[in-house]
Amino acid sequence: MNIFRLAGDLSHLLAIIILLLKIWKTRSCAGISGKSQVLFAIVYLTRYLDLFTTYISLYNSIMKIVFIAASGATLYLMYVKFKATYDHNHDSFRIEFLLIPCVILALIINHDFTVMEILWTFSIYLESVAILPQLFLVSKTGEAESITSHYLFALGSYRALYLLNWIYRYMAESHYDLIAIFAGVVQTILYCDFFYLYITKVLKGKKLQLPA
């Protein structure tokens, strides 16, 4: 464990908590893409199956349980409790266009052709594009509530911090995983446009408005 990875995990946890609080407090999931949340749930379920087979550390196991539980709670709030506030019209990204290529790529480029490893690889590829429906929704509505932009900033920062973690681990432990690194770079790049808007607008107290 290093400071970059810990900061990344905490940023990830913060993002998930911000989202849950936003939906719970405002009793609305307006502006949030349910499809992205479905993809994140798939990412956690396919990646954290080793929760029952491999014990790495108490921290690792607890965080996995928290992420899966929070993801399930978010889906429950969005699709059951506050279903009426879910923005079906704007949340129209075709997630099969993300799922199918990730499955194919995971079958072609992986470290080991075993079920667990293929699922892990699929999860890594899917996570890198899972935010697209959310960014698509923000672009369609042309704006995002400030709490939603804080959520996106924390979520984008988590993988950016992981990039620093991978540089550190390469230098300090000569450990690297090209699949995770490649997907992490793609994932972080997808947020760049949003990071620019967040820093130039939201931090100045303005509303996040995308140029029409």
Binding site: R47, T54, I56, N60, K64, H111, D112, Y162, D177
Partner: peptide, 10 residues
Amino acid sequence: DYGDQLHDEL
């Protein structure tokens, strides 16, 4: 080889 790749990250 990578086969025994242990994924110790979240």
